[in-house]
Write a protein that binds this DNA or RNA. Structure first.
Lengths: 216, 216, 216, 216
DNA sequence: AATGAATGAGAGTTCATTCAT
DNA sequence: GATGAATGAACTCTCATTCAT
């Protein structure tokens, strides 16, 4: 009974998801303004009318796509959770995972499209910021704080330190990627970047330097 | 005589610049795809036909705007030149100037528009990257290298260190700004960010801590 | 059931034909280049958008018109079928019918428009030539061949003779009509031309001259 | 004095001719409607303004081109003058020359363009018809009349016979050429056509048939 | 719920023509 | 006389959206 009752609802949701999948692809390829409802309908194999049965207009379709992407991004930010007890290893692993996500073609195209529309619709930008950068840095800050509590790090302001760690990791590649200056980086390229970032970060925030310690 | 001879040339160039000024404004407000040649012509107080006497089509008008913006940005990167002999002060001042430029509404809107179009036209993205981030970090790397030569810093890889310094300075605000999550920061907000960045940077790359040295 | 099932299809085809009717009129009045999609839409009482729902662009609309005209022309070439047993009467009748078709305002305007576009699109010219002149002369050649088989004519090369007969019939009027030098000819004017053509043709291809016959 | 006084006049005429040369090329390539004053000016290496100093508008430029082409065509019709005393040879030679002119790419493109515009401007069509077909057939009629006076031909209506001869010669190839169905014919192809035409023509209009003669 | 025909506003672009220099 | 910048109307074509079926 329940199944039967849910069936149309399920169908509708499934269709909605399928539409969003196609819409996202088209938005990523063309940008919001250049993407056309006709193209989306054509790729979907349905009619334009159907699109409008699911979404009031283009703007809402885009908004729905953004919402879904933000949810996905929010999940992806679990990359900022570290399990390893060893801070150095934990940061390295975390940096790797994070960079491989945010520097992927997929993430970047979404970033470009959403940032472009953030100009006219701050709500869109806010949703993106909160589900991604903000959430990610908070999760990382939590980790840093715990490490500090264990004496593994010296971080007076964990949130700021989190931002700094991310900045160290991604600044160079992120800009190059945003500008389409380079293709998706290889794991090796990412490693180089992360290792250097961890080194700098620990030099600044690691436990008191060995030299000083031994001197005491 | 010279003036008279140059007059038509000057006039044409002046007009061209005026068109680019208006076009830029419209592109920044609407984005490339949504900006319309009609709007640009109307704001200019001229006819659409005139626009096409100066630029072959919308794409070329946009490209011309990008070129001009890149030239400007290239100039702006002199913010990465430091005069102060004191490294701490130099980095702080330089960070302040840099952030006030790249986080300004003007720079950010340009960034959003250009990055959005970098998707379909890598040439545009490349021009932007080379005239801005690449040039800026190289100039900063030069400074770091000189400071290292004077023993003021320990930077095995100046270019990487430059990227890291910039990452430390701007990561948090840049993302928030890109997402239109916050308005143009005040000088005070910038200061906070820069000071923290310099501190972290020098903790990692500054000369060996005086305490440790004296202890030896 | 069938009617209902066919209705949408029928409607669409009907509409398509209606568009082609209007488009043809406009093309004939203005020529391909000068005819405007706006004019066609306006005369149709519909919107420009609708036009583009039926034809991808102006070029395809024109091509569709040409195809339809060629089909019509191909049918019209049955004028080249003769029933009369008497060769003289058959040729005369056939010439009359043929000229009244090809010299009509309708045929000529189509001819002018299509020939003009044959310059840039040989495919258009080919379709026209094959459905009209080529088909017509072949049908006539068949008739001449049969007449020759019955000893009514002496035509070593029926196809060439067919072309010559047509040339004799239409040359003068066709050129004058093409140049818009004269209005649609009256049946009497056509008669004069055809009678003279038949006379010449039979003088050349008719059975051995009476004189010779009587001489035998 | 005279020369000096004429010089500017000469220059102006020369320039005018140069403009017409270019305009003709463009009209032949694009057709009247699609040809643009910009294209003509650009090919000329001059400015659009200059064009309008010589011709009031596009229509007049086209008319001037037509006038000049008609003058040329009128001259070309001397192909219809025959020198040879032998009628058979004279007609053959004349047919050859005529066909090689009217079937040339140059003549045909002019024909297509002018005929297309004859629809809206009968004056243009008239000028073309009178300077070409009409004049040509009259010259030929004169020749036939003289031959008839010498007893070389039996032509009760020389003008009609002239039209018929031309029809016999060109009908097939002319239509195929107009439709862009075939390229410029070779001299051999022309020969075949002319020889057949002369044969038919003389069979109909030649001196009393040999058979009848021998029978006498 | 799905369709797809219809719409009309507006996009980028071209053009013949004018006019001040 | 030659120039070329300016114009504005008109062009082809696209689009988001609506609505009857």
């Amino acid at each position: 009974m329940l199944d039967i009752a849910n069936k149309p609802k399920l169908d509708r949701d499934t269709r909605r998801e399928a539409i969003l999948d196609v819409a996202r692809d088209v938005f990523l390829e063309e940008g919001y303004a250049s993407a056309s409802m006709s193209t989306i309908a054509a790729r979907l194999g349905g009619s334009k009318g159907t699109l409008y049965n699911y979404f009031k207009n283009k703007e809402e379709l885009f908004a729905a796509y953004v919402v879904r992407h933000c949810a996905w991004q929010s999940e992806a930010m679990f990359a900022m959770l570290a399990e390893d007890e060893d801070v150095h290893r934990a940061l390295t692993e975390l940096g790797r995972t994070y960079l491989s996500i945010v520097l992927s073609d997929f993430s970047l195209r979404n970033f470009r499209v959403i940032v472009a529309e953030a100009q006219r619709s701050p709500a869109i930008g806010r949703a993106f910021y909160e589900s991604g950068p903000q959430r990610g840095s908070r999760l990382l800050a939590d980790f840093l704080e715990q490490a500090a509590a264990k004496g593994q790090l010296r971080v007076p302001d964990p949130l700021r330190a989190a931002h700094q760690f991310i900045g160290l990791c991604q600044n160079r590649l992120m800009k190059a990627r945003l500008c389409n200056f380079m293709p998706e980086p290889t794991p090796e390229e990412i490693d180089v970047e992360v290792i250097a970032a961890v080194e700098t970060f620990l030099a600044a925030f690691g436990p008191r330097p060995a030299a000083a310690t031994s001197a005491a």
